[in-house]
């Protein structure tokens, strides 16, 4: 099997040019067209992403909406104290992290497996049909999809109606603290797996068929082909998606949680964003929302940096 493994090349690029003896300026000049390709995007980011970041100062200010942010007085870390000092903060962090973690643990593999299964289908009409159907829920907003979820799993939804009609007991999927997070994760998967598979399907189509050929010649069975050819081929995409999803670890899916949570499951289902929404945005406290955004960004950055470091240690291509 070692040959097969070797046949899946680590797509490392040969260092292209002799560089040691060139000055940095000369190198920059040499690659001027490459820079020219990047430049418009850099300008876009500086203008539309970095310039408005001046506004992040309101996280440290008592924002007076009409006077504007420059006239508003500084209040130091008050909004951060509000956030970290909240009685509920430990619970919110725990819920947010757990829900995000479960989402990655269970939700991350599903689109991959789905794409692999689809890849085995030869009937094109079936393949396209399944693909189109499964990606439909992505277009429903959570307001709508949550309504559907409640129609299915709610106290008087399809499942419970069937249970009660067959003499069983009602199961409180949505109001039981033990099952609520599972419902969040499962319905999240249900809504997004078809959409999530698209990127893997694209990646599958770029795997060199010769590698399969080589594996077949080596007598590799189907599952081994998947293990030794397909998965390594998907690895770069998987790695990058995983790392980027870690960056959003403290976003546990506001829209979904907000629509599905209820009074009975607050202790397991209330996340940072739903809390900030209720405590802050309803009262138009932009400062608190900005402070929380900063905090989430810093944590996300730390996650991305460490995940990237791990990637590099594993010999994978890192993000930067």
């Amino acid at each position: 099997m070692s040959e097969v493994r070797a046949a899946a090349p680590p797509r490392r690029r040969a260092t292209p040019a002799p560089r040691g003896h060139q000055s940095k300026a000369a190198l920059v000049w040499r690659y001027r067209w490459i820079y020219a390709l990047i430049l418009p995007t850099v300008i876009y980011f500086v203008l539309f992403a970095y310039l408005p970041m001046i506004g992040l100062q309101i996280a440290f200010k008592d924002f007076k909406v009409f006077a504007g942010m420059w006239e508003s007085p500084w209040v130091g870390l008050e909004h951060f104290r509000t956030m970290f000092g909240s009685e509920k903060f430990p619970e919110l962090i725990r819920n947010t992290l757990l829900i995000s973690f479960y989402r990655i643990l269970f939700g991350f593999p599903v689109p991959i497996i789905f794409a692999l299964l689809l890849n085995e289908v030869r009937r094109m009409w079936f393949k396209r049909g399944v693909q189109t159907v499964t990606y439909f829920p992505h277009f429903l907003s959570w307001v709508v999809f949550a309504g559907i979820v409640i129609n299915i799993l709610g106290p008087t939804g399809i499942v419970n109606t069937l249970l009660v009609n067959t003499g069983g007991d009602r199961i409180n999927f949505l109001t039981n603290p033990d099952s609520f997070r599972a419902v969040l994760v499962l319905t999240g998967i249900m809504k997004e797996f078809g959409w999530g598979a698209i990127i893997y399907l694209a990646a599958l189509s770029s795997i060199d068929p010769e590698l399969y050929e080589a594996a077949r010649v080596d007598g590799a069975r189907k599952l081994r082909q998947i293990w030794h050819v397909t998965l390594p081929g998907l690895r770069p995409v998987m790695a990058v998606l995983l790392v980027l999803s870690l960056g959003g670890l403290l976003d546990a899916g506001f829209d979904q949680v907000f629509q599905l949570q209820n009074g009975a499951v607050l202790e397991v289902g209330d996340i940072i964003d739903t809390y900030v929404y209720r405590a802050g945005l309803l009262e138009a406290q932009f400062e608190l929302a900005t402070a929380v955004g900063l905090f989430k960004g810093v944590v996300g950055l730390a996650m991305i940096v460490s995940a990237n470091w791990v990637l590099r240690r594993m010999g994978q291509r890192s993000i930067w």
């Binding site: 992403a49 929302a289 955004g293």
Partner: peptide, 26 residues
């Protein structure tokens, strides 16, 4: 082209906006 000078700086420039939104008002 990871070999161009300033590559890492440019990548950071791209990644930061993904994590820090500037907010509605600004």
């Amino acid at each position: 082209k990871t070999y161009i000078p300033g590559y890492r700086f440019l990548m950071w420039l791209v990644i930061i906006p993904m994590l820090f939104g500037a907010g509605l008002i600004p």
